[in-house]
Every structure is written in structure tokens, then in C-alpha cells.
Design a protein around this nucleic acid. Sequence first.
DNA 1: ATCGGTGCAAACAATTTGCATTAGA
DNA 2: TCTAATGCAAATTGTTTGCACCGAT
Lengths: 141, 141
Amino acid sequence: MDVGHRLRDEGYRLTPQRQLVWSVLRAAEHHLTAEEIHARVSRTVPEFNVASVYRTLTLLADLGLAKEARLGDGPGHWEVAHPDDAFHLVCRACGTVDHHQGDLVEQVRAHLSGGHGFVAQDVDLVVHGVCAACAPPPAAG
Amino acid sequence: MDVGHRLRDEGYRLTPQRQLVWSVLRAAEHHLTAEEIHARVSRTVPEFNVASVYRTLTLLADLGLAKEARLGDGPGHWEVAHPDDAFHLVCRACGTVDHHQGDLVEQVRAHLSGGHGFVAQDVDLVVHGVCAACAPPPAAG
DNA sequence: ATCGGTGCAAACAATTTGCATTAGA
DNA sequence: TCTAATGCAAATTGTTTGCACCGAT
């Protein structure tokens, strides 16, 4: 995905800051907060400002390239927008956030389209619980 | 539901502020933000403080009587905790928040319990879109 | 009489904004 | 060149906390 193209096509400028935010986001194994993105980019560009992170993320979201997930309290978590609809599993014990692939989001959409008159644009599903690694092993006997 | 009992049973005190927050919450036709609750209670008790709203809501949530819903940006929205699992439909046009009853949340739970090893404790489902009232009528012809 | 709860104000965290400067197109 | 984008700092917004006083049990 060529952000430079996308940006210019929409009349925006391609700046090093925007490229950096995007590449950090793409390289991330998991979701990142604005602060985390800021920290990573700052290693290379010390004067890089948080405000620019927010501005860039908002822009990327407008273009449909990035997406914010609110996983409870605390700051928003950002990720590359996936065309497929996944949802988040947040472990209360270790804090790990997992993507879970499934047709559930699609089911919701289908369910709503059936006569409810509500046009679903964005389905946000967050499940809090305890992940397999943190769950107590089944009691023997 | 007798909050007084619940509170005292758990070793908490029943104060007029807590009663007021609870009754405002129960009387509300829809979700309320902490500020809205504060505003309503303040009509009767002018010196009533926002901090107490937050403290009370947190307490009620701990007791399982109230629940916070994060419906996007902005402040959290509070409601009486329903035993049944409903989810929220937020209209981007008019801002209306609808409860939608369905087995979807249960489906999610069932889906996850099937071999994924993730123990779902809380399923938060928020759908943003356009409600029936705001949706453009189907084009004739 | 206790000790938990309150009001108040100040602290906080996350995000946004105003403005002068800089740099992409 | 010309305007959009940045850095910086200050402003906002939503929520939490410290502390002295008050009131429910």
C-alpha cells in the first residue's frame, strides 16, 4: 500500500513524519498507542511531536488506512485497518490483546440488515476476559 | 432492587448522594454521562459534586448494579446493568443510542468457549451507523 | 464515637488547538 | 511561491485523588 500515492491523490502532502508513523504502524506486531508511536518515531526524529502523531493518525483513519480501537480505559490503540472484520480479545490478567478472526462481525451486520432499518457502518466488538495462557488449568480429578 | 440493602450488605453506607445517583440512573430513559447525572442531581442538591458521581458510579459498577459503555469518543455513558446481554446501536446522524436485544452476545460467548481457551467475561459490542429514522428512504424506481 | 463518604480544589491523562515557522508541491 | 503541515506550548475534556470536615451506622 503506497501511502504517498493515497495522500497526494487526496490532496495531502507526503511528509517524513507521516511516512514514519505509517511505517511504525505497519511494522508493529500489535496495537500501538499514540504515545508508543511517538516514542518509536522519536528515536529517529527527536523533535517529533505527539500532536503530529494524533494529526497523522486522524488523517490515516479518514483515509481508511488506520483504525483506532478503544479497549477499555486508557489511551486508544491504533492499528492498520484490515479489510476483514476481526475483533479484540483483551486479557484482564496479562493485558495481551489478541485479534480474533471470525464471521461474528459479519453476523451482526447480517442480523441488523434483516428488517431493523439500521445501517451498520462500523461494528466494534471487544471481549474482556482471561486468555488461555492465564486461565487456571482445569482441576484434575 | 434495594440499593440500601445491597450497599449495607457489602459494608458500604447508604448516603443521600448514592440514592440520588441510583434513582436518576433508574429513571433515565437512556444512558447518561457522569456530567448529566451530576446536573440532574444538582437541581436538588446544589453542592453535589462530580467527584461523588464518579465514586458512586464506580461503586455501583463494582456491585454489578451499573455499567459503563464507551460509545466512541467523549465521556462514558452509564446505565443500569441489565442481566440480559444487549448491545448498542449508535446513530452517526442523530446521535441516538439504541439498545438492541439479541443473542449475538451469547453467540460470541459460545463461539469463544469452543476450544479457544479464552474465558469471556465481558462482551462489549457497539455498532455505529445510521438509524432507520435518519436513513435516506429507498430511491423509487 | 468511629470511620467511611463528601465537597472542594488541585492533579492527571489523553487529546486538541492557536500560532509562528518550515517545507512539500 | 504558496499553502498545508509541523513543533511547541497552552488549552480542553474527562476522570481521579488528597485532605479536612461531616454524617451514617
